[in-house]
């Protein structure tokens, strides 16, 4: 079973995304901020990271940059953010994100993108 770590400070989004992905058969780990996300990344084997950009303690971009510098991981990263401006999107991709979804988003689209990202890992 593929394991996905979802890092999001809005509890409703976190629960909804987790609920939706677990129905698709994924094992979900939830993190409520960037710090929590980094801790869980250290202790768990994760196949995909879905992260928000603006989170307390450590923001999404910092998570991505630490992940790339410390773990040298090939794990795909998807960003979920309300910031739809071109600069934000480009910055996230530049830091190492593989996909970017702007809020409000569709859960069906999210599931499709997750499937594609996990398939590309293979």
């Amino acid at each position: 079973m593929k394991r996905i770590l979802v890092a999001e400070d809005n509890r409703l989004i976190l629960e909804t995304v987790a609920h939706s992905l677990s129905r698709e058969g994924y094992d979900i780990i939830k993190a409520e901020d960037g710090k929590d996300c980094l801790t869980k990344l250290e202790t768990n084997e994760v196949d995909l990271l879905i992260t928000d950009l603006y989170m307390p303690n450590v923001n999404g971009l910092e998570v991505i940059s630490k992940l790339n510098s410390n773990y040298k991981s090939l794990m795909p990263i998807m960003v979920l953010s309300a910031a739809g401006a071109e600069e934000s999107v480009l910055k996230a991709f530049d830091m190492g994100a593989d996909d970017y979804m702007v809020k409000p988003f569709s859960l069906i689209e999210l599931n499709v993108r997750v499937k594609r990202l996990l398939a590309s890992k293979k």
Binding site: N10, L12, I13, T16, K103, P104, F105, S106, L107, I108, E109
Partner: peptide, 14 residues
């Protein structure tokens, strides 16, 4: 407020 939170963050089927 919960419904507003749903509405501002999700589209599609919701």
């Amino acid at each position: 407020s919960v419904l507003m939170n749903f509405n501002t963050n999700f589209k599609g089927e919701f």
